[in-house]
Nucleic acid binder design. Sequence first.
DNA 1: AGTTCAGCATCGGACAAGGG
DNA 2: CCCTTGTCCGATGCTGAACT
Length: 296
Amino acid sequence: MKAILQKVPESVDSSFAVQEFRSAYFDTPWHFHPEYELVYILESEGKRFVGDKISNFKPGDLVLLGSNLPHWYRNDAIYYNDDPSLKASSIVIQFTTDFLGDTFLLSPEMFEIHQILQKAQKGLEIKGGLSNKVAKMVREITDLKGMDRLLQLLRILNAISKSDEYRLLSNKGPSIGVNVNDPKRINKIYEYVMNHFTEPITINEASELIHMCPSTFCRYFKKRTRNTFTFFLNEIRIGHACKLLIEEDLSITEICYKSGFNNISYFNRQFKSRKNMTPQAFRQEYYKKSSYSAAL
DNA sequence: AGTTCAGCATCGGACAAGGG
DNA sequence: CCCTTGTCCGATGCTGAACT
């Protein structure tokens, strides 16, 4: 998909930016920018799009995104219903690799941080104990100024580089050569799919949205997102099904229909191909891990 | 819940036309 | 000349029914 190139505001008194966002929902579109970005979710739930991967996010979610890696945080539908009790908030740290000078990152002491930033080109989801540790440091950095703030960022990057408690998010790196003109059409399709993925959606409907014939639409979509439309749609539906499997006490059949599938056999096959296990096994695996961690 | 299979729908490669 | 879009058509994916 084509992402919008976002211009990150420059700060006059800092070599990098720390920003706190708080609103009814996250409204930044699918975009990318040259700055690295550490995103810590304080409030709200939804789906996180990084490169070619779609996952669920919730409070505590912590992700390090590489330079020019397209991303989008989309809240669940209830956040768009003007419910004043629901808020979306996050802390975002944005920096470039030369924020301490052109060659600083090449110094031997920075070797491990350099390596972790390279891995971040595919997006890193920070997990486990490292997540708690980094989250605490991210909350602290908002109150720091000047040199203390800069040292805190280095501490955060150092902590991530010294750990292996993270997983790569995307299979593909940044979209080199993305066409930065005409971002509206793909975003229109994304918005439509996010609002209707629990209902039947055909290629015809989607292609009519941007006034294209179906085959042109398929090629257009593949060229920009590197996924087929069907794969993209099913990725969102399976992601939603995973959420329901964990959070709702519904049968697999009910979850299948509530996720936008209308065929259990197809749902099962799609689920297995993406998660390498059946929906039932996924649920059992989750609760086994939960009871294990609760027992510790 | 999960598997298999036949029939239909969609995908995507090859090629061509049109516009800037 | 390059890029976008349309058409054709074989390959592949998806669906729904029947079954374990």
